[in-house]
Nucleic acid binder design. Sequence first.
DNA 1: CTTTAATACTTGAAAAAGTCAACGATTAAA
DNA 2: TTTAATCGTTGACTTTTTCAAGTATTAAAG
Lengths: 154, 154
Amino acid sequence: MDPKNSASDSVQRLAQGELAGEIDFLTARIRSQGSSRANSLLAPLDLKVRSYSVLSLACSDLAPTQREVAEFLSLDPSQIVPLVDQLESRGLVERVTAPHDRRTKVIAGTKEGKKLYLQARKATAEGEEASLEALSSEERTTLRELLTRIAFGA
Amino acid sequence: MDPKNSASDSVQRLAQGELAGEIDFLTARIRSQGSSRANSLLAPLDLKVRSYSVLSLACSDLAPTQREVAEFLSLDPSQIVPLVDQLESRGLVERVTAPHDRRTKVIAGTKEGKKLYLQARKATAEGEEASLEALSSEERTTLRELLTRIAFGA
DNA sequence: CTTTAATACTTGAAAAAGTCAACGATTAAA
DNA sequence: TTTAATCGTTGACTTTTTCAAGTATTAAAG
């Protein structure tokens, strides 16, 4: 991939239109680039951004239920099922029925899952580093803070 | 929709995990919320974010070809075809074969297309205002600048 | 306590979106 | 003049998204 990730001439030209100023468009474009790159970096680990995201939540100490994972990732609950199925069949996560509410299943990362997550985390960090190349350290912090406020409300 | 768009308790809780700090995840979540809201607001005009984006480029004075539109929107060229087909059948845009290169077709907004675009632009602006509610005017400017640098390279 | 309603996960079907190879027309390069 | 490359298009295929319904469990209402 291009060491500097500046876009083509065509793109630079169209970037002068009104659309380029809209947050929706900008985030869509960045997300497209970002997840494409992340998928490439995660491929050697047999993960995609989706499965990586689930694995990340499972390997945290937050003990999220499937419904919570779905809501957090802006996905339909039915989409979580095959994702967890795959991870579970690889021994990376486990479905643990919560004792106080036997309807819910907490997704818990296994020892192996946590080991793989550490590797995967490095991969996504590398991808992010590449994406944010054009920004200084302070700017990255600012960006993260602003995005967080938008993503989760004030 | 909720006047304040703060997320549920579950989401706030999971937002303490490592994943919530990743730019990829944040942009994915924001884009999901944003385009969902934008689609609702555009529905009365029989537009979606995709068709709106094409219309926006067509109604600019940039005279973009289909390939350029595809690249700009991070889409496969074959995805542009049905989008333009629909807009063209509604009389909103026209395919104009470029004289100097008869392979390319410039997507040009018609008078009606530009009229509809003005309305649609208001709708998306309203959606953006709602998304960025938590940010001050200066913060919005900063955010837009940082996102632009990432989206199009330094 | 019993009935009713609501929630969580799952299944499966249908629609939408993304990916990819190949084609005809046209232009650029050799 | 031949060869190679580009643009829009088509079609096949996979993936993702969206919904409605089903089962199990819990919560609320009576």
